[in-house]
Design a protein around this nucleic acid. Structure first.
Lengths: 329, 329
DNA sequence: TCTAATTGCAAAACCGGTTTTGCAAAAGAA
DNA sequence: TTCTTTTGCAAAACCGGTTTTGCAATTAGA
């Protein structure tokens, strides 16, 4: 049922129907009786306007694009939930996609969302999206980047201080009495990963220790990852503590440790919390990013920019907490 | 840049531009040279058509609505990822929302997605959506319900056999030597929950045991839930095994057990797997729904219905595996 | 050489709305 | 009573595309 059909049925013009439906009867000088007659019929047949046509006419889609690396992930999933809730409070819907860290998927998705006239974008970018993001910015599309920056591109950004948090984490392991502290990370060139790595190296150097690093390919399947970690542990028996750049690397390592011929306990600390960390024995400490605060900051920044296209960008670094769970040995 | 502006710039009609851009130069009998001239200019300025206008004209949005209970959840998150991947392979985008199990949110979301002309809906419904879903069906919108059925409404459905799986699970606990088997669940009227409960009662009766049930409100915050479970355990010291209708109830219980004044080990078995179950000591068995298979079936069903509006619905019950992790005591 | 068919594109209609403009009839002012 | 406002709504233009139709110019056919 279209507005034209309604108009025809009631023998009025569609402009009249449109005005009445949108509560602009007054301003369109439509008489009360006619307005009532129209509303009655509209309610009777349960008419709902075609949102596409409406968006085309008004230029408003009430939709925000949300692009994360992996919606099934224990970091992005919950953050997506919070973002969605805050956006809903502002009357926006979410068009989402996962990039799986792949450049071409990411680019296609951004393009598709821009084409679909989203009113803003929330993006956790991959490597190689610089040019596209600059293009998006040039077109004045409201945009917030989160979790990782795009080096050399100035945008709104919300994330945590990976470098500082990483330093605190490694310091804590030293302070807990460990001395042979290895780091397990992925060989990604993403800034947040590089920052975490830099923090590790810095403290290792400060304590005059030797860096012991396992860098795994992001594309490695889980079983291969576990195998690689297992070998790393077996070839580096001197290790007494491990620092992980992500929580899932820690989970994989726990699995790898199970597979070791003889059990061994490590001091462990991971970037990003995980439900299981407090349920293990010994518990596992972590750096916890305040997901709700991050989501709130992202949405607030985006809405602000939509309402009033800004001249300058905001760069918000939300501190993470070091959650200390295990006692020093 | 619109297609009209391009046409004006090149002194041609916009119909010509449209035909060329969409590779219909042949069928529109546009000369090669003109087609090339148009394509060159289009590429030069990097024109991308407005997807809204295109959708309005063609009636195709290439968008599917995905409505889950909670995208941050360890069941819905990963399943959403898989659904998204399969849909991408078919050229569809995803508009998603979480209902948080709330009726009015769910209804608004479905309405919004229908208004936005999604080409199909994938829905994990809440209680009270019957009428709306029937309305959606009457409008011939392709639809797949998953995880839980809507009693009395015939639709496409993909889910697991909650009743049978539940029976197998409780049987397994008995067979492992436990005799005082409690069940912890939420007091939801959702069919999948009722089926799980029914399976428990059936086996308990068959073994001539006494049902021992804790039904928690879905709206309970996590700390309160943990507290309630703790009290339940303290008031029912005879319990030696626990069966959980969802994995997060098991996780909450693990937390509650930590808080008990003196440690106790239970036989435990949960509906839905969780990363941590195989990392604990003792490990926790579970019923594992095959997420990828479920996602694949959902998408296949939906695509089939889009391509060829069916007369009849398919009801697919995908068996779950009982993953036995702990050894019998 | 005259008519018929084909070529090449412009123009128009349409998708389903919103918003501005215009105009006849009624009401008010002089 | 005549001119000016105001009222109440229809008509038209627009959003940015797609697709069908129509028509002049060229080519082919006889």
């Amino acid at each position: 049922m279209s507005i034209s059909e309604i108009a025809k049925h009631l023998n009025v013009s569609k402009s009249t129907v449109s005005l009445v439906i949108n509560g602009k009867a007054e301003q369109g000088r439509i008489s009360q009786e006619l307005a009532k007659r129209i509303m009655d019929y509209v309610n009777e047949i349960g008419y709902k306007p075609n949102a596409l046509a409406k968006s085309l006419a008004t230029g408003k889609t009430h939709t925000i694009g949300l692009i994360v690396e992996n919606i099934g992930d224990s970091f992005f999933g919950p953050i997506a939930l919070h973002i969605e809730e805050y956006l809903r409070q502002h009357g926006y819907y979410v068009l989402y996609s996962s990039t799986l860290g792949e450049e071409d998927i990411a680019r296609n998705i951004v393009q598709a969302m821009v084409d679909k006239q989203v009113e803003g974008l929330i993006l956790s970018p991959t490597i190689g999206q610089e040019a596209q993001v600059m293009q998006v910015l040039k077109n004045k599309m409201p945009l917030v980047i989160f979790d990782r920056r795009i080096p050399g591109v100035e945008t709104n950004y919300v994330g945590t201080d990976n470098y500082t948090a990483s330093k605190k984490a490694v310091e804590h392991l030293f302070d807990s009495g460990f001395s042979q502290i290895g780091m397990i990370t992925i060989d990604s060139q993403q800034p947040q990963m590089l920052d975490r790595l830099r923090g590790y190296h810095e403290i290792i150097a400060k304590r005059k220790a030797k860096p012991q690093l396992l860098q795994l390919s992001y594309t490695l399947e889980r079983p291969d990852r576990i195998q690689a970690i297992k070998e790393f542990l077996q070839n580096n028996k001197q290790l007494d503590a491990l620092y992980f750049s992500t929580n899932y690397l820690c989970v994989s390592t726990l699995k790898a440790i199970q597979l070791l011929p003889k059990a061994k306990t490590y001091g462990m600390l991971a970037f990003d919390d995980h439900e299981l960390f407090e349920l293990l024995n010994p518990k596992i400490s972590c750096i916890r990013q305040p997901l709700e605060d991050i989501a709130k900051a992202i949405v607030a920044t985006l809405i602000a920019q939509i309402k009033e296209p800004k001249k300058s960008f905001t760069d918000q670094v939300i501190p993470s907490d070091l959650i200390i769970r295990q006692s020093s040995r």
